[in-house]
């Protein structure tokens, strides 16, 4: 049940990305280019997403079980430390360079995009590097 709901959630997420314009690197770049002709559309993607997700997470904080019967787990980390900030800065730089963040890159892969395929392979390699560098602490 947990996996079935996740399948539907993944599908809805992907359709949302396609509809929103997030899966178009040129549109992402148009949003991140404040000094050029600026396309504010993607601010509305985040706004629309939070408007729907915020009540759900407010409810989720009061629950310990999900509809599927499994435990409902929310992140517990709350420290704002160097790995968080430096990692996020590196992520933002990569996002700006290619116009892809992880979700849109995977959806674009599903569209058969070769550039997205190259990006996803490199992203997986980057994640593997992190897993290897942090292996002793895992």
């Amino acid at each position: 049940m947990q996996a079935l709901i996740a399948l539907v959630a993944g599908l809805v997420f992907g359709v949302g990305l396609l509809l929103s314009g997030m899966a178009n690197p040129a549109k992402v770049a148009g949003f991140l280019d404040l000094a050029g002709p600026w396309d504010p559309s993607l601010a509305l993607v985040m706004g629309g997403a939070i408007a729907v997700a915020l009540p759900a997470f407010t409810l989720a904080k009061k629950r310990s079980r999900a509809w599927a019967g499994c435990a409902l787990t929310l992140p517990t980390a709350n420290r704002i430390d160097a790995p968080l900030v430096l990692g996020s800065l590196a992520f933002g730089a990569g996002w700006g360079l290619a116009g892809y963040c992880p979700g849109p890159a995977l959806v674009s892969l599903g569209m058969g995009s070769a550039p997205a395929g190259i990006f996803v392979l490199a992203m997986l390699a980057g994640m593997a590097v992190h897993a290897w560098l942090t292996r002793s602490r895992a």
């Binding site: 996996a3 997420f13 949302g16 509305l44 729907v52 997700a53 759900a56 079980r65």
Partner: peptide, 18 residues
């Protein structure tokens, strides 16, 4: 599109607990 992404996140946290 953003609302659908929010709906997906809502479904995954409340339905699958993740």
């Amino acid at each position: 599109g953003g609302a659908l992404i929010g709906l997906s996140a809502a479904l995954l946290i409340l339905g699958s607990g993740r």
